[in-house]
Amino acid sequence: MQNLILNALEKAKTWARLNSPWVLHYNSGSCNGCDIELLATITPRYDVERFGVKLAGSPRHADVLIATGPVTRQSRDRLLRIYQQMPEPRYVMALGACALGGGVFHNCYNTLGGIDAFLPVDVYVPGCPPRPEAIINGVVLLLQKLKGEAVPHGEPQPA
């Protein structure tokens, strides 16, 4: 009986999470290009708020951390602190070429690499900067992962 209730609760929580993935955006050293495209994704043409995606002001309210840019020496500690402040389950999306592996700043004296050198990244969105459509695709992949579905790897499969 207790298990049944817990199961139902777990299902309700997943349902809620799927319908309101709140996002915390952190720029760990980006040139602002990705940040602007991320913002464009929440404005009327792309309007991801339709799907419950919303920018949260505090890491304590966020489900998903979207990190843009390479991790710089200055921002590493902040990035880790923000991640630790997020409640579980938490997800990380790396946005843009620099967040994936350093991009043009690869091997710079003041950068330490991509986001996945420090945090477990769930979704990678490539591009310089990624188009809003690509960001939405990343969110869809993340939601699939949240649902526990298999997420495609490697080459995109024809629909």
């Binding site: 602007i36 495209e37 913002l39 464009a40 404005t43 009327p44 310089c128 900067p129």
Partner: peptide
């Protein structure tokens, strides 16, 4: 106003994309 101006900004981004194939760079 933020939402309106960013919606309209897409018009010029479309034109830039038609010209050079990219929205930002």
């Amino acid at each position: 106003l933020f939402m309106y101006s960013w919606r309209d900004r897409e018009a010029i981004l479309d034109a830039l994309e038609a010209l050079c194939g990219n929205r930002v760079n």
